[in-house]
């Protein structure tokens, strides 16, 4: 099991990255990637929900009848999201306000329901937990990449501190269009390297 984690991580972060390769969970990844702290917070919150719901759904896979599995999954996911929401409001109020509406919207993040349906409902608890962790980390890495680019280009800042003294930031990268442009070029770059590799 343990020696598998390396390959599993590669799968979650690179080959099956939820955002860049599978194009799932796009709304939060563009909506909150205006600063690295937001991106990291959103990524970790979603990872927690993903691990939790994967574990519970895997435990309940024999109990939940086939016909009502989707509503049952939604209830499990929504409870985890609400718990994350309350814990964050209590202990990280600044992050809670800056993520705003995107915290309750973790419920409809297609990655989470997708992993529940495609993986947790068919595999054992440990594997499901690892799958949740790996996919969550892939999501977090993608968010951090997007938000680093956007924060540096759009605000000339990284983690809230000035990055290149004297550089005049291009505000458009923080605004909505910049989100689309950033993800377009990151995915384009990934495709470019993939094609180069295939040619060899």
């Amino acid at each position: 099991m343990i020696n598998n984690i390396g390959t599993e991580l590669k799968r979650g972060v690179l080959t099956e990255n939820p955002i860049f390769v599978l194009a799932l969970g796009l709304c939060p990844s563009l909506g909150v990637s205006t600063s690295v702290s937001n991106g990291l917070g959103m990524g970790l919150a979603s990872t927690f929900v993903l691990i939790g719901s994967n574990i519970i759904i895997s435990l309940l896979k024999k109990v939940i009848p086939e016909q009502v599995r989707i509503p049952a999954y939604i209830i499990v996911i929504a409870s985890f999201v609400t718990i994350v929401q309350m814990v964050m409001q209590a202990y990280l109020p600044a992050l809670y306000t800056s993520l705003g509406i995107f915290i309750p919207l973790i419920v409809v993040n297609c990655i989470i329901l997708g992993r529940a349906e495609a993986f947790a409902s068919k595999n054992n608890v440990i594997n499901s937990a690892i799958d949740g962790l790996v996919m969550g980390l892939g999501f977090t890495v993608a968010l951090v990449v997007l938000s680093t680019i956007r924060e540096i280009l759009g605000a000339n800042k990284l983690l809230g501190l000035e990055f290149i003294p004297g550089f005049k930031p291009m505000t458009i990268f923080i605004l909505a269009p910049g989100g689309f442009f950033t993800i377009a070029f990151v995915v384009g770059l990934i495709n470019f390297f993939k094609m180069k590799k295939e040619q060899k």
């Binding site: 309940l60 109990v63 939940i64 009848p65 009502v68 509503p71 049952a72 209830i75 499990v76 929504a78 409870s79 609400t82 718990i83």
Partner: peptide, 14 residues
């Protein structure tokens, strides 16, 4: 019944 049980447990934990 299954859905009710799941919803109740979820509601209680929230």
């Amino acid at each position: 019944a299954t859905l009710t049980v799941i919803a109740t447990v979820a509601g209680l934990s929230i």
